[in-house]
């Protein structure tokens, strides 16, 4: 479903601030695979997801989604293949627009925006039912401005918006990191449900090693712009935090696994 071949991303090329964020990352995801991505601060996790989403171009390598080479496609043209939820709850929604208006914009992903009504009565019913599945009481607040929602509610809504059109690929970038533990757990649970229900191919970045072990059927670890650990199947199921830390120390040559990973 996703084929990333040897991508390199260098920020501020040729300046004193030059920073190589991805040093030749390759990754293949089969349809329906759920990968959790971990790595320390600045390891390149967000850069990898942004490169796949097309927020910026890569310096070399190629990206193929569902058999389609998207390496040179701008972000908005790839969007019909990709659903995204960001770390910052403010990022995924338009705050001064209503819940239903936000959903309606997401509902039309990959379509031309025409002069037809932005929200039709028919879809309003659909949204009401969908929001009810979140169990956050949003189904009765269709016209409320999204800016009035809590961070957790906004993330849940963004999750719904990202998956409304069954994307080929779902990218979750630490989407629970800004939430309090209880809300984070709830949003994570919702993510798992939605992914399972729609059998979505998913990459989920997380800071939390336990989450990474508990969720997904594959785990990759980034370190200094490279994938240093890639575990799937039975091995992933049996994985413990301790195994992960040992593996990290062995492969990165860094003795400070705690400091690097649990930041």
């Amino acid at each position: 479903m996703l084929d990333v071949r040897n991508i390199v991303k260098i920020f501020n090329h040729g300046t004193v601030n030059e920073k190589t964020a991805l040093r030749g990352v390759s990754l293949h995801l089969s349809p329906g695979e759920f990968v959790s991505v971990i790595g320390g601060n600045g390891a390149g996790k967000s850069t990898l997801l942004s490169a796949v989403a097309g927020v910026y171009g890569v310096d070399s390598g190629s990206i193929t989604i569902d058999g389609r080479d998207v390496t040179r496609l701008p972000e908005y043209k790839r969007a019909n293949l990709i659903g995204r939820v960001f770390q910052d709850p403010m990022m995924g929604t338009a705050a001064s627009m209503g819940i239903e208006e936000n959903l309606a914009i997401a509902k039309r992903r990959g379509q031309r925006r025409t002069l037809k009504w932005g929200v039709t009565p028919h879809e309003r019913e659909e949204y009401r039912e969908l929001l009810a599945t979140l169990d956050l009481g949003l189904e009765n607040r269709l016209t409320s401005k999204v800016g009035l929602l809590s961070g957790g509610q906004r993330q849940a809504l963004t999750l719904l918006m990202a998956t409304l059109k069954s994307p080929k690929l779902l990218l979750l970038d630490e989407h629970t990191a800004a939430l309090d533990p209880k809300t984070a757990a709830r949003v994570l649970e919702l993510s798992e449900q939605i992914v399972a229900r729609n059998n979505l191919t998913t990459m989920m970045v997380t800071h939390n090693m336990r989450d990474a072990i508990a969720h997904g059927d594959r785990l990759i670890m980034l370190y200094d712009g490279k994938i240093i650990i890639d575990i799937a199947g039975e091995e992933k199921k049996k994985l413990t935090t301790k195994d992960l830390l040992d593996m990290f120390e062995e492969r990165s040559g860094s003795g400070d696994a705690d400091g690097n990973l649990l930041l």
């Binding site: 989403a53 972000e75 908005y76 043209k77 969007a79 019909n80 990709i82 995204r84 960001f86 403010m90 990022m91 995924g92 929604t93 338009a94 705050a95 001064s96 627009m97 208006e101 936000n102 309606a104 914009i105 997401a106 039309r108 992903r109 990959g110 379509q111 925006r113 025409t114 002069l115 037809k116 009504w117 932005g118 929200v119 918006m161 990202a162």
Partner: peptide, 21 residues
């Protein structure tokens, strides 16, 4: 309309708008 909503959303949060294609 769909188009007008897209313009309003652009002024609000261009990141979200691009992510929605």
């Amino acid at each position: 309309t769909e188009l007008g909503s897209a313009i309003r959303a652009t002024g609000n949060n261009p990141n979200m708008v691009r992510a929605q294609g």
